[in-house]
Structure formats: C-alpha cells, structure tokens
C-alpha cells in the first residue's frame, strides 16, 4: 500500500468511528464514504502491502499473495493480469497456448488490455505451461468424497 492509500485507510478508519458514534446517537441512515483502495486485494491472504514480509513469498511452488504457480514469467503475469481482475480468474482456467493467446487478444479488443510487447511470449508460455488443459472426458469420478455418518433427521 502506498502512502496516499495509507492516508485514505486512516481517513476511512476515522470515518468508520465517526459513523459508529453517529449511528449509536442518531440511529440515522445517511452517511457515505469512498472505498479505501483500488488495488488488487487477495482476500484469502490479506497480503496486499508491498512492505509485508510475505508479499512475494513462494511456498510449495505457490506465490502466496496471488495463488499463482512459481515459474518463469510469474512477476510479469502478476503485473499484467491482476491490475484489472483477480488472479483467481487465471488460476481456475486451463487452456492451450493458442487459446491463452486468443484470450489475451479478446481482452485487448474488448476489455482495455494493453499491448504486452516483448513480454507476451513469456506470459503466454507461463500460462500454457502452468495452466494447461487436463483431459476430463465426458464425466469424471468424484474427486474426493468426505464420508460422514448420516444421522436420522
């Protein structure tokens, strides 16, 4: 979080306090304030401050803050892909090189993604390597069944 965002966060905290007092005293409904940050927050880790010791920590091959797999091009992917959307939109998908490339083109044509220039090959290679399709057939077995004793209702 940069210093201006910190100021906004402090300001928001003060506003919340004022609002709480306001509510207790007035039981009124008219207050409003700005969202405290625009930057990408990974809600499952809460690590969104560059000074956080785990900001770019990798554990068991996973970049903790974003959930991305460790690999060549990781930082480029973080920078270019998570400005607009969650890393989760990447990590839950599986595509071939051709389809990752087509997805980038679609984002450039319709979603305001910028020209990736010389970084494009590295990014596409990272995505097609780390998030390649897995054959699933026409119906899969249950992945994991958590057995439990069914009680009478």
């Amino acid at each position: 979080m940069n210093s201006s965002n910190k100021k906004i966060a402090v300001f928001a905290t003060i506003l919340v306090l004022i609002a709480m007092v306001f509510f207790v005293v007035q039981d009124s409904s008219l207050f409003t304030f700005k969202e405290n940050t625009e930057e990408y927050i990974a809600p499952e880790t809460g690590i969104n401050d560059p000074s956080h010791p785990d900001y770019d920590k990798i554990e068991n091959g996973i970049h903790l803050r974003t959930g991305f797999a460790e690999g060549e091009g990781l930082q480029l992917v973080i920078t270019n892909c998570t400005t607009c959307h969650s890393a989760k939109l990447v990590t839950q998908n599986r595509m071939s090189e051709e389809r990752w490339k087509a997805t980038i083109r679609w984002m450039q044509e319709t979603q305001n993604l910028w020209d990736l220039g010389a970084n494009e090959d590295t990014i596409v290679n990272y995505l097609a390597t780390q998030y390649a399709p897995i054959a699933k057939g026409r119906r899969q077995n249950f992945a994991k069944i958590e057995w439990y004793n069914l009680k009478d209702e």
Binding site: L15, V16, S29, L30, T32, E35
Partner: peptide, 22 residues
C-alpha cells in the same frame, strides 16, 4: 460490527449504502 447490522439493515436501505467499509 457494521456489516451485518447496518449495511443490509432496513433503516439504511432507504438511503445511502456505503460499500466503503471493504
């Protein structure tokens, strides 16, 4: 504290809705 009781409360529903709490 605020989230469950106020953001979605009926009192507030008539006026501004703050999503700022984040």
């Amino acid at each position: 504290l605020l989230g469950t009781e106020i953001v979605f409360g009926d009192t507030l529903a008539a006026g501004y809705l703050p999503l700022g709490l984040q």
